[in-house]
Simulated assay, not measured.
Amino acid sequence: MSENDKVFTGSIPEFYDTYLVPLIFEEFANDLAHRVCALSPSRILEIAAGSGVVTRALAPKLKAGSHYCVTDLNQAMLDHAKTRQKADPRIRWQQADALNLPYDASSFDVAICQFGVMFFPDRIAGYKEARRTLTPDGALVFNVWDDISFNEFADVVTDAAAEVFPDAPPRFLARTPHGYHDISQIEEELRQAGFSQIRIETLEKQSSALNASIPAIAYCQGTPLRNEIEQRDPDKLAHVTDVATKAIAARFGDGPVNSKIRGHVITAFS
């Protein structure tokens, strides 16, 4: 993983939340919120909260006396998430590194992470740190994307970017968001971190948009793929987005577009 894969700054958070969240994240966020609520937690830690889509789904479902710490490594993403969330005394916002969480042992009943562990520079260390903050019967609930071939908009956009830069194809989407999908590897790394009861479920959903430009903008301008494109040629962002739009339209149609998205949902207990 490149260091730039973790950089969500400038206008990326706004594009991410406006375009990418409704495109691929909302349904999975609702699923995670349902799973967390089924565990009836009082103290919840959210790791790598991004622009707050899980926070918005989960907070209304929590008990009145709950304590909910929402964290992210990127302050820009956290600041954006706060602007989207109604004032809630149960929620504490804090910039935090998933590998060095600023909380005591056994502080939380549940730790939750939506599509964030792929960005951890050391996933086993991240799992150990999450486990440290959990009570002995606490749970880590998170999800990861499946291989990019099962996530069609992302796959088409990656191919479109490679068409523009054939000598140095931007591979952020395949490398990082969709680069950690081997179920046996995920389970083994969780066991190395001390988790013994692990459930993994694969979910397939539909990603829909009013037109082909929406997923093109979402991926090209609302993710660190933008950083890769601008590093290669700062004047080519609009061109890559246009090429991606045409490629999506060619495959899925000129009007409303629909494609497959697929991820794994993991619940792990010590």
Rank of each mutant, 00 (worst) to 15 (best):
R171C: 09
L140I: 12
A139F: 02
R123M: 05
I229S: 06
L32M: 05
E230V: 13
A168I: 13
D79G: 06
H178F: 00
D79V: 13
T202P: 03
V54A: 02
F15H: 12
A244R: 12
F119C: 07
D109K: 13
L32W: 02
Q75S: 09
K236H: 15
G10F: 01
H239L: 14
G116I: 03
A29P: 01
D88S: 14
E187T: 08
I183L: 05
P166M: 15
D147H: 02
L225Q: 11
F165Y: 15
Q192R: 11
I24M: 01
P136H: 13
I229G: 04
A216F: 03
L62T: 03
A38C: 12
E230K: 13
M77N: 10
R84Q: 13
T83K: 14
I12K: 07
T267P: 09
V164F: 14
S2R: 13
N227R: 13
A96R: 02
T71L: 03
L39T: 06
D155I: 03
I248A: 10
A38P: 05
G65M: 04
A38W: 04
V21Q: 04
L23G: 01
A76W: 08
V110N: 00
A125D: 11
E27C: 04
N143R: 04
P166G: 15
W145K: 01
D31C: 05
T223S: 11
F195M: 08
F165L: 15
L134K: 04
I91Y: 05
F252K: 03
N211P: 10
E26W: 07
A96D: 10
L62W: 04
P121N: 09
E3G: 07
K6N: 12
E26Y: 08
Y219R: 12
E27L: 02
R56F: 14
R191A: 14
Y68H: 07
F120Y: 00
L140H: 01
K260G: 03
P169D: 09
H80E: 10
G116M: 00
D72S: 07
A105P: 14
P169V: 08
A174T: 06
F25N: 02
R226M: 13
A29I: 00
C37E: 03
A87P: 10
D97Q: 08
L62F: 01
C220K: 01
H34K: 08
F108R: 02
N211K: 14
G253E: 13
D5R: 04
R35S: 05
E189G: 00
L190Y: 07
V7C: 09
H178C: 00
S106K: 15
S40H: 11
Y68C: 07
E152L: 01
S40C: 12
S42I: 10
C220E: 05
S66E: 03
P256R: 15
N143H: 01
S149H: 07
Y180W: 06
T71M: 05
R262V: 02
N227K: 14
C113R: 00
D79M: 11
E163K: 15
D122R: 05
I112S: 05
V70D: 06
V53T: 01
T241I: 05
G116W: 00
G65P: 03
A33G: 01
D254Q: 14
K63H: 06
D254R: 07
G10R: 14
A29C: 09
Q206L: 06
A268E: 11
F115A: 02
S149R: 09
A139R: 01
A87G: 10
A87S: 12
P102Q: 11
G263R: 02
A38F: 06
A244N: 12
Y16K: 12
